[in-house]
C-alpha cells in the first residue's frame, strides 16, 4: 500500500482527490466555500486534523483490534477536532467566527475516517503522515478553488478577509472587482452544487485528454 511517497502525494493532490475523485466530504465542501478564505481555512483545519489522525492511527494500528477499530478512530478524530475547535476559538477568534459552525463538521468528515480506514491502518507512520498531508492539501486546494469561484461570481471579490486568516501581510491577496455586485445565487447552496458539477466535469475532460495524450505518446507514430 505504501508505495513511494511521490505516488502518495500525487494521489492526494489529484488522482484520488477527496472532493473531485472520491467525492467525499461534500457537506463541508458545500457549506463553507462561500469565499476563498473560508475554503482555505476549513481546508487547513481539516489538513491539520487529517495529518495528526493519520499519524496516531498509524502508530496504534497494530494495537487496535478489528472489533473496536471504528469507535477508536472516531474517538480520536472527535478529540482532535474538539481540540482544534477550542484552539481556534481561543487564538484565531476572527477565523473562528467565520468557520466556527463548520469546524464541528470535521468530526463527521468522512474523508478523515476514510483515510484512517483506507490508508493509515495499513501503512507506516511516515507514509500515513504524507498521505494525510497530501489528501488534506488536495482537499484544501479543492475547497479554495470552489470558494474562489463562488466568491468571484457571487460577490465580486477574491480572498476577502484573507488577512484575518493569514495575517496582515497577506492583504495583497484581497481583490475587489469594481462595479460588480455579484450573482448572489453563487453564494447560496445551489451555486455550490453548480460550481462543483462544472469542476467535476472539467476534471473528467482534463483526465480524458491526459489519458489520450499519454496513449498517443506511447504508441509509436505509424505514418
Amino acid at each position: 500500500m505504501s508505495d513511494n511517497l511521490g505516488t502518495i502525494v500525487k494521489n492526494g493532490l489529484w488522482e484520488n482527490n477527496v472532493v473531485f475523485a472520491q467525492m467525499l466530504a461534500l457537506c463541508p465542501t458545500m457549506a463553507v466555500t462561500t469565499s476563498g478564505t473560508n475554503g482555505l481555512g476549513m481546508g487547513l483545519a481539516t489538513t491539520a486534523v487529517l495529518v495528526v489522525s493519520n499519524i496516531i492511527v498509524s502508530l496504534i494500528r497494530k494495537t487496535v483490534s478489528d472489533q473496536v477499530r471504528i469507535p477508536v478512530f472516531v474517538v480520536i478524530i472527535a478529540t482532535l477536532v474538539t481540540v482544534v475547535d477550542m484552539a481556534l476559538n481561543a487564538w484565531l477568534h476572527e477565523l473562528y467566527k467565520v468557520l466556527g459552525l463548520f469546524i464541528a463538521l470535521i468530526v463527521v468528515n468522512c474523508a478523515i475516517l476514510g483515510r484512517a480506514e483506507a490508508f493509515a491502518v495499513k501503512s507506516g507512520v511516515t507514509a500515513s503522515a504524507v498521505d494525510g498531508l497530501a489528501m488534506g492539501l488536495g482537499f484544501t486546494g479543492a475547497l479554495t478553488l470552489i470558494g474562489l469561484i463562488r466568491e468571484f461570481l457571487g460577490s465580486g471579490t477574491l480572498f476577502a478577509q484573507a488577512s484575518q486568516l493569514l495575517g496582515p501581510g497577506f492583504s495583497f491577496l484581497e481583490v475587489q472587482v469594481a462595479g460588480y455586485g455579484g450573482a448572489l445565487l453563487m453564494i447560496l447552496p445551489p451555486g455550490a452544487f453548480a460550481v462543483l458539477g462544472f469542476l467535476l466535469a472539467g476534471k473528467r475532460i482534463l483526465d480524458d485528454r491526459l489519458a489520450a495524450r499519454s496513449v498517443a505518446a506511447t504508441t509509436p507514430a505509424t505514418a
Partner: peptide, 18 residues
Amino acid sequence: ASLAWAAHATKDAIAAAE
C-alpha cells in the same frame, strides 16, 4: 483527559476573545 487539558488551557483565552 486531553480534552480536559485543552479546555483548561483555552478557557481564559476564549472568554477574553468573546
